[in-house]
C-alpha cells in the first residue's frame, strides 16, 4: 500500500491566477472554465474560492494554480495574472501580483501609475452592455481577453466554457470572442 518515489526539488512550474470582484459577476465561473481548460490539456489545477463578508470588503475571490505537476500549496502568494472586477478587489489584492493586471475600467476607476506596463484595460462591462445587452456576459469577455493575453488555446477554452455553462451558449461564445479580439489585448499578447 506504499508508493515511494524520488524526485528533484521542483523548479517554479506553477502559474498563479487571481480573479476577484463582487458576488454575481461570475468570478468563480470564470475560474472554473479556466481550470477545466487547463485540466483538459493535461495540467493539474487547484482553485480556492472565498467569499469575503461585508465587513471584509465584500469580495469574491478565485485563486487558481495551474501546473504540469501536482500542486501542493493552493494559495496564490505571487500571482502571475490578476483579474480585477471591482475597486475593493483591486485595492486589496494588486500587491499580490507580480505580472499582468487585467481590470475593468467601469469598475476600477483608479489604478496605480507606477507600473503602467503591467496594466491591461478590458472594458468588459461596457462591451457586455453595448454589444450583448447584458452585463452578465462581462466575465466571458474578460476570459476571452485573458485567453489571448496568456497565449492559451482559444478553441480549448471555448470547449471548456460550453462544458461548464449550461445556458446562453451563443451569447457566451460571442462574448469570449469579443474579448479575444480586443485590439488593446491583441497588441499586448
Amino acid at each position: 500500500m506504499a508508493g515511494t518515489e524520488t524526485k528533484e526539488a521542483p523548479a517554479k512550474t506553477r502559474t498563479e491566477i487571481l480573479i476577484s470582484g463582487f458576488g454575481g459577476q461570475g468570478v468563480i465561473r470564470m475560474g472554473q472554465i479556466l481550470g477545466l481548460c487547463a485540466i483538459n490539456q493535461g495540467h493539474r489545477v487547484t482553485m480556492l474560492k472565498s467569499h469575503g463578508t461585508e465587513t471584509r470588503g465584500g469580495y469574491v475571490r478565485a485563486q487558481l494554480v495551474i501546473s504540469p505537476e501536482y500542486v501542493d500549496s493552493p494559495v496564490v502568494e505571487n500571482a502571475d495574472v490578476f483579474v480585477a472586477f471591482s475597486a475593493p478587489a483591486y485595492k486589496r489584492f494588486h500587491e499580490l501580483c507580480r505580472g499582468k493586471i487585467l481590470y475593468d475600467p467601469e469598475m476600477v476607476e483608479e489604478v496605480r501609475s507606477d507600473v503602467p506596463g503591467r496594466h491591461v484595460e478590458v472594458p468588459a462591462t461596457a462591451l457586455a452592455k453595448e454589444r450583448l445587452g447584458n452585463v452578465l456576459f462581462a466575465n466571458m469577455i474578460m476570459l476571452g481577453a485573458l485567453t489571448r493575453l496568456a497565449g492559451m488555446d482559444f478553441e480549448a477554452m471555448k470547449r471548456a466554457m460550453l462544458a461548464v455553462i449550461p445556458r446562453f451558449h451563443e451569447e457566451n461564445l460571442k462574448a469570449l470572442d469579443l474579448g479575444y479580439q480586443l485590439d488593446a489585448v491583441a497588441r499586448r499578447a
Binding site: 489545477v45 482553485m47 493552493p74
Partner: peptide
C-alpha cells in the same frame, strides 16, 4: 479548504 476547494 479541502471541502470547498476545486481541484482536478
Amino acid at each position: 479548504v479541502i471541502s470547498d476547494m476545486f481541484e482536478d
